[in-house]
Nucleic acid binder design. Structure first.
Length: 438
RNA sequence: CGGGGCGUAGCGCAGCCUGGUAGCGCAUCUGCUUUGGGAGCAGAGGGUCGCAAGUUCGAAUCUUGCCGCCCCGACCA
């Protein structure tokens, strides 16, 4: 993309409304524009990042055996009356009437809809397990939206729903999502730790929140230090084999957020292993059994010929929240530092003297080569000063900056800067291209 | 929802206390000079001062109501 033809409105100063660094940088780098409290328009750069995160989530869900569908944002109130949640959900639910005076709502989540889909088609234990997910906009009319897209009212969520014939099978479904989530965060360059979460009225131990560590996190996290560095299981595990040992290895170490914190257990750990930090919740998984299947009569016939309600679990990832969370975890004074997996462009070509024949020619060559290599480069061909280009490239956080100026041209070299480290090398163009394309 | 703060040009702010018809920086446009970390000079455009009512000869400024946004808290299957 040539920047002269693109739409990337950057701001030198952050709007006063933005208090936390990710929100400030998202506005300054032109990722989003606020339309109302907790409601944002996604500008080109922000949309690219959002789509990339979405794709990582999609790939890891698919790998773990989940199947993508797309459910509507507007849902019928009648379904929620079946589950009993229409009255329970309260003011957070945005309620709407259509022209026939029929009650609709903007979905804050989709248990009812997915259960309705499931019960319409699946009747036998032989068709289980099933895990259906979608990546769709949700609306929760939060009392106090804040921190930009971190806690918006409208937000993009990946929500998956598992269906099994009994609790043991549901636990296996749960384990698949548990490990798949760790892979998602690892691919996004995040260190996520699974913490024990409040399982709600169902009880048991099958509920975890995934927290990434950042000073601006809304939750306090207490955890065994080793969990942070344990890493993800990777894509090559046997997803439909026995995952229990792999999950147990990660859940046996202490980790809890404030509401589940057990000071005695925490204090029992060696002092150098105790870690206290702020965390951002970027995922929540749990098993809730028959909570929806029973009232909504989502029944399957078991091997013994008897009908039982499906055992369900649900698994959420805040996709739009992850954009902010990644920035919180990865930035410096100059701007955002995107992990390569979600960077809006793979590399930037900075023409320090647009209009100079030599600079133009080298930049065009580099731009074509990077495009051909699939890097999706951003070419800053604007008639502007070098300082403005450096500042913009740093701000929007593109991993590689290929800097082309008249000084280097005279000596047959360009400069290659790595955004994350600030490291620069002055080398011939072909060497720079090779370094970028690997 | 309780508490606090703020709404003045696209962004950041001053002016308000003590009423006299709106200003600064950045950004934008034009010209010239510049060109390796957000350039300099000269000129130009852009504002129902959140909305409404009131007080007053006169309101960005004082009063009242409403709306919007932000922060803290509570809340967050």
């Amino acid at each position: 993309m040539r920047l002269s033809r693109y739409f990337m409105p950057t701001l030198r100063e952050a709007p006063a409304d933005a208090q936390i660094v990710s929100h400030q940088l998202m506005l300054r780098a032109g990722l989003v524009r606020q339309e109302a409290a907790g409601i944002y328009a996604w500008l080109p750069l922000g949309l690219k990042v959002l789509k990339k995160i979405e794709q990582v989530v999609r790939e890891e869900m698919n790998r773990a055996g989940a199947i993508e569908i797309l459910m509507p944002t507007l849902q019928l109130a009648d379904l929620w009356r079946e589950s009993g949640r229409y009255d329970d959900y309260g003011e957070e639910m945005l309620r709407i009437k259509d022209r026939h005076d029929r009650d609709l709502l903007f979905g804050p989540t989709a248990e009812e809809v997915v259960t309705d889909i499931f019960r319409s088609y699946i009747k036998s234990y032989k068709d289980l397990p099933k895990n259906l997910y979608n990546i769709q906009w949700k609306f929760r009319d939060e009392r106090r939206p804040r921190f930009g897209v971190m806690r918006g009212r409208e937000f993009l969520m990946k929500d998956a729903y598992s269906f099994d014939v009994d609790e043991a099978a549901a636990r296996r479904s749960y384990n698949r999502m548990f490990l798949a989530y760790l892979n998602v965060y690892a691919r996004l360059g995040l260190k996520a730790i699974p913490v024990k979460a409040d399982p709600g009225p169902i009880g048991g131990d099958l509920s975890h929140e995934f927290m990434i560590l950042a000073d601006t996190g809304e939750s306090q996290v207490f955890a065994h230090r080793d969990l942070v560095e344990m890493g993800a299981p990777g894509p090559d595990i046997d997803w439909f084999g026995d995952l229990e040992p792999e999950v147990a290895r990660r859940t046996s170490l202490y980790a809890a957020s404030d509401e589940m914190h057990d000071e005695a257990r925490f204090a029992a750990m060696p002092e150098d292993k105790r870690m206290t930090a702020r965390g951002i919740e970027v995922g929540h998984i749990f098993y809730f059994g028959e909570k929806y299947s029973k009232p909504m009569k989502a029944m399957v016939t078991g091997p013994d010929g008897k009908d039982v309600p499906a055992q369900m679990g649900s698994y959420g990832v805040g996709v739009s929240r992850l954009v902010a969370a990644i920035i919180e975890a990865s930035h410096d004074d100059a701007g955002i530092i995107w992990p390569a997996s979600v960077a809006p462009f793979g590399a930037a070509v900075l023409n320090l003297r647009a209009g100079d024949a030599g600079c133009d020619a080298v930049c065009e060559t580099a731009y074509a080569a990077l495009t051909a290599a699939g890097l999706d480069p951003l070419y800053d061909d604007r008639d502007d000063r070098p300082g403005a280009k450096f500042a913009a490239a740093d701000l929007v956080g593109i991993p590689w900056q290929l800097i082309v100026g008249p000084k280097g041209i005279a000596e047959g070299v360009v400069e290659l800067k790595t955004r994350a480290t600030g490291e620069r090398q002055t080398i011939p163009l072909d060497a720079a291209l090779k370094a970028i394309t690997g």
